[in-house]
Simulated assay, not measured.
Amino acid sequence: MSALPASVLEAKLKLGIIQTSLDPFAAWAASSAIPKISQCEEERAITEIRAHFAAFHQEKPPPDIIVLPELAVPTGFEGKLKTMAAKMESVVIAGFDYRADVQPGHVHNDALMIVPKRWRGKTIGAKTIARRIGKTYPAPAEKAKLDAIPCSFVEDPAVWLIDGGAIGTFGVMVCYDFLDLERITMYRGRVQHLFILALNQDATSFRHVAEAVARMVFCNVIICNCGYFGGSLAVSPYRLPEHRTIYNHAGAKLATSQIIELPVGDLSLHQSKSPTNDDGKTFKSLPPGYTFSVELFEHSAKIEK
Rank of each mutant, 00 (worst) to 15 (best):
M1N: 04
M1V: 14
A3F: 12
S7I: 09
A11R: 04
L13H: 00
L22T: 13
A27G: 07
A30W: 10
S32P: 01
I34R: 02
I37G: 03
I37S: 04
I46K: 12
E48F: 13
R50W: 14
A55M: 08
Q58S: 14
E59F: 15
V67P: 00
L68V: 06
P69K: 06
E70M: 09
L71R: 10
T75F: 11
T75S: 14
E78H: 13
L81V: 04
L81N: 01
A85T: 01
A85K: 00
A94H: 08
G95H: 10
F96A: 01
D97A: 08
D97Y: 08
A100V: 05
P104V: 09
H106V: 12
H106W: 14
A111F: 07
A111E: 01
V115D: 08
V115N: 06
K117N: 06
K117F: 03
W119C: 02
W119F: 04
K122Q: 13
K122D: 05
K122C: 06
I124Q: 14
I124W: 13
A126I: 02
A130Y: 07
I133T: 11
G134K: 11
G134T: 12
K135N: 05
A144S: 02
P150S: 07
C151P: 05
E155C: 04
V159R: 11
G164T: 09
T169Y: 11
T169R: 12
F170K: 03
G171H: 08
V172H: 04
C175A: 13
D177F: 07
T185C: 08
R190Y: 15
V191E: 07
H193Q: 06
L194R: 05
L197C: 10
A198G: 08
L199C: 15
A203C: 09
R207H: 08
V209R: 09
A210I: 00
A210L: 01
V213L: 07
F218A: 07
C219P: 05
N220P: 03
N225H: 14
C226H: 02
Y228N: 11
G230Y: 13
G231T: 07
G231P: 02
S232V: 09
S236L: 00
R239H: 10
P241I: 00
H243R: 03
H243Q: 03
R244Y: 01
T245F: 04
I246H: 02
A250D: 14
A252D: 15
L254T: 13
I260V: 11
G265F: 01
D266A: 14
S268K: 01
Q271A: 09
Q271D: 08
P275V: 07
G280Q: 04
K284I: 06
P287M: 04
P288T: 12
G289K: 04
Y290K: 06
T291Y: 09
L296C: 02
E298D: 00
H299K: 12
S300V: 07
K302F: 10
